[in-house]
Each structure stands twice: as structure tokens, then as C-alpha cells.
Amino acid sequence: AVSDRLIGRKSVVMEAISPQNSGLVKVDGETWRATSGTVLDVGEEVSVKAIEGVKLVVEKLE
């Protein structure tokens, strides 16, 4: 599936994300709604860990 190619990809937070609120990330020039178990600020680099419905699950790059 097209979405499977996103797992493991680097992306950049475009709208802040917290455990309570989804935000936005940009992956390969496309904007996606995303969630995370931690707070992520605009501009942080993250990695796509999973896809749940139409949202990406991301975490901060170490």
C-alpha cells in the first residue's frame, strides 16, 4: 500500500503534537495528521512509526 512506504520515513512537525491532540507533519512534501505519545514542537524531526486509519503515529528522532 502507498501508506506502507511512509513507515520509517523522516518527517518534520508542522503543527505541534501532544498525547491529547493530534498535529500535522510533512512527509515527502505531503502533509499528514499525526499523533504521538509525547509532546512534539513545530520544526522537530520525527520518524513515522505506524499508521492508524488516516493518521500517522510518529516519535522524535534520537
Rank of each mutant, 00 (worst) to 15 (best):
A1S: 13
A1H: 12
A1C: 14
A1V: 12
A1Q: 13
A1L: 12
V2L: 14
V2W: 13
V2K: 11
V2M: 13
S3H: 14
S3T: 12
S3A: 13
D4K: 13
D4Y: 03
D4G: 11
D4M: 10
D4C: 14
R5K: 10
R5S: 10
R5E: 08
I7P: 03
I7L: 09
I7E: 03
I7W: 00
I7H: 04
G8R: 01
R9L: 10
R9V: 06
R9H: 07
R9T: 06
K10C: 14
K10V: 13
K10W: 07
S11C: 15
S11F: 07
S11M: 13
V12C: 11
V12S: 05
V12Y: 07
V12P: 02
V13Q: 03
V13H: 02
V13Y: 02
V13L: 02
V13S: 01
M14H: 07
M14L: 14
M14W: 07
M14V: 15
E15H: 06
E15Q: 12
E15D: 06
A16M: 11
A16L: 09
I17R: 00
I17P: 02
I17H: 01
I17L: 04
S18Y: 08
S18Q: 05
S18V: 06
P19E: 05
P19L: 06
Q20G: 14
N21Q: 14
N21L: 11
N21Y: 12
S22C: 14
G23F: 02
G23C: 01
V25Q: 02
V25G: 01
V25W: 00
V25D: 03
K26F: 14
K26Y: 14
V27I: 14
V27G: 01
D28T: 01
D28S: 05
D28C: 15
D28V: 03
D28W: 05
D28N: 09
D28M: 09
D28G: 08
G29F: 04
G29R: 03
E30P: 07
E30G: 05
E30Q: 10
E30Y: 08
T31F: 14
T31V: 14
W32A: 09
W32H: 14
A34K: 01
T35P: 03
T35S: 09
T35H: 05
T35Y: 04
S36Y: 00
S36W: 00
S36V: 02
G37L: 13
G37V: 11
G37W: 11
T38W: 09
T38L: 08
T38S: 14
T38Q: 15
T38R: 07
V39W: 15
V39Q: 11
V39S: 13
L40R: 00
L40M: 10
L40P: 01
L40G: 03
D41C: 14
D41P: 09
D41K: 12
D41L: 13
D41R: 11
D41T: 11
D41F: 12
V42Q: 06
V42N: 03
E44N: 05
E44C: 09
E45I: 15
E45P: 07
E45K: 08
V46M: 01
V46S: 03
V46W: 00
V46K: 01
S47T: 15
S47C: 15
S47H: 13
V48M: 02
V48Y: 00
I51Q: 06
I51P: 00
I51Y: 06
I51N: 04
I51K: 05
E52I: 13
E52N: 11
E52P: 02
G53P: 03
G53Y: 01
G53Q: 03
G53D: 07
G53N: 05
G53M: 03
G53W: 00
V54R: 13
K55C: 15
K55S: 15
K55V: 15
K55D: 09
K55Q: 14
K55L: 15
L56M: 05
L56K: 03
L56A: 04
L56R: 02
V57W: 08
V58H: 00
V58W: 00
V58E: 03
V58Y: 00
V58R: 00
V58C: 02
V58D: 02
E59P: 01
E59S: 07
K60S: 08
K60F: 05
K60I: 06
K60A: 08
K60M: 06
K60E: 04
K60H: 07
K60Q: 07
L61G: 07
L61N: 07
L61A: 09
L61F: 11
L61K: 07
L61W: 13
E62M: 11
E62F: 11
E62R: 11
